[in-house]
Design a protein around this nucleic acid. Structure first.
Lengths: 188, 188
DNA sequence: GTCTATACCTTGATAGAC
DNA sequence: GTCTATCAAGGTATAGAC
């Protein structure tokens, strides 16, 4: 069984993960995270020395989540085309959160990309996971330009996330995702 | 001729506009703006009472710029299809800035959308300008679903901006814009 | 491992002399 | 209109008792 320290660490990462998504990294303070995790501020530094360390742990956590999700899709779904549909279904299921807070991957990368290059490099790895997984599916479907198609789909999803957040509405998201599904069926 | 106060005000807005884009709104301090505008910190408050006031002025400034640009396109270009191509050309010409700082409209809306709803409402108006102008062009081309098409094009551009910033590369941007131009020629 | 207290800095913002 | 001095609040981070 995990020791108490490890449990506290996990609580902190989970709380930070949520806050960084909902408020943004720079808009979340140490105190916010400590309060949410119900860890006294002083004790906090036993687990993480700097705020950047917390972000690194949060990104690692997200990378683990994404990796596990993609592995599960691979295990559950044999057909690449259906796997791609699963990706689109995930975006659709995230509609409510997208409308409120945008894409967790996209918004973090945009925030860090402005003036925190070291942190951004780490955050970009989340994109790499999806890009490579999508490209693998397109390749299985016999597309030589698999990487371009992967970026196309990823870019479409990011654009939808932005519009959905800007207008705080999922209507456009759903019609566009319908079109993307039709495109997958017809042309891919 | 404008009085000195008005000139100072304009200098502040111009400096803030640049910094809010390059660093983000919340990551830009009063001091940053004052230094960039070369206005002593104390004197600063003669022109703007709060940071939100500066943002409001910056958004108004951007709205003026966008409005003027769209009006100029309308005046210079008669054919709606060519106007739409002009929009795509603008995105293409912004490649370098997109790679470094993302889309000025998109990144601001995403940042403010997280936890500053009042400020976000104002920032969204920039999107409205483009959406309505694009919709007008599609309508002139006889499309009953002009608003959907406008949001589609706007969303595509936003998605490209995100991918371009995440990977700090304009290669994908340009190939995708080529495809968008072909789509305009063929299907619109 | 846990927690209190606190140092030290930067922030947005004000007062008031000139 | 301009500028100095300063404030209170909130930020990250540390020292050290328990």
């Amino acid at each position: 069984m995990p020791d108490k320290g490890e449990l506290n660490r996990q609580r902190i990462v989970a709380a930070a993960n949520k806050l960084f998504y909902q408020r943004g990294y720079n808009q979340t303070s140490f105190t916010d995270v400590a309060d949410a995790a119900r860890i006294p501020r002083g004790n906090f530094y036993y687990y993480f020395k700097t705020k950047d360390d917390i972000l690194a742990a949060v990104v690692d956590y997200r990378i683990e989540m994404i990796t596990a999700m993609l592995a599960q899709w691979d295990a559950e779904i044999a057909a690449p085309r259906v796997r791609l549909q699963r990706f689109i279904a995930m975006v659709r299921n995230s509609g409510k959160e997208l409308a409120r807070f945008g894409c967790p991957m996209g918004s973090l990368n945009i925030e860090l990309g402005k003036a925190q290059p070291a942190l951004k490099a780490k955050a970009r790895k989340m994109f790499d996971l999806f890009r490579d997984w999508l490209a693998a599916q397109f390749k299985l479907l016999g597309h030589p330009d698999a990487k371009e198609l992967a970026l196309h789909l990823l870019g479409r999803a990011q654009g939808l996330a932005v519009i959905t957040q800007v207008y705080a509405d999922t209507g456009f998201l759903n019609t566009e995702l319908d079109q993307l599904e039709a495109w997958l069926d017809k042309y891919v």
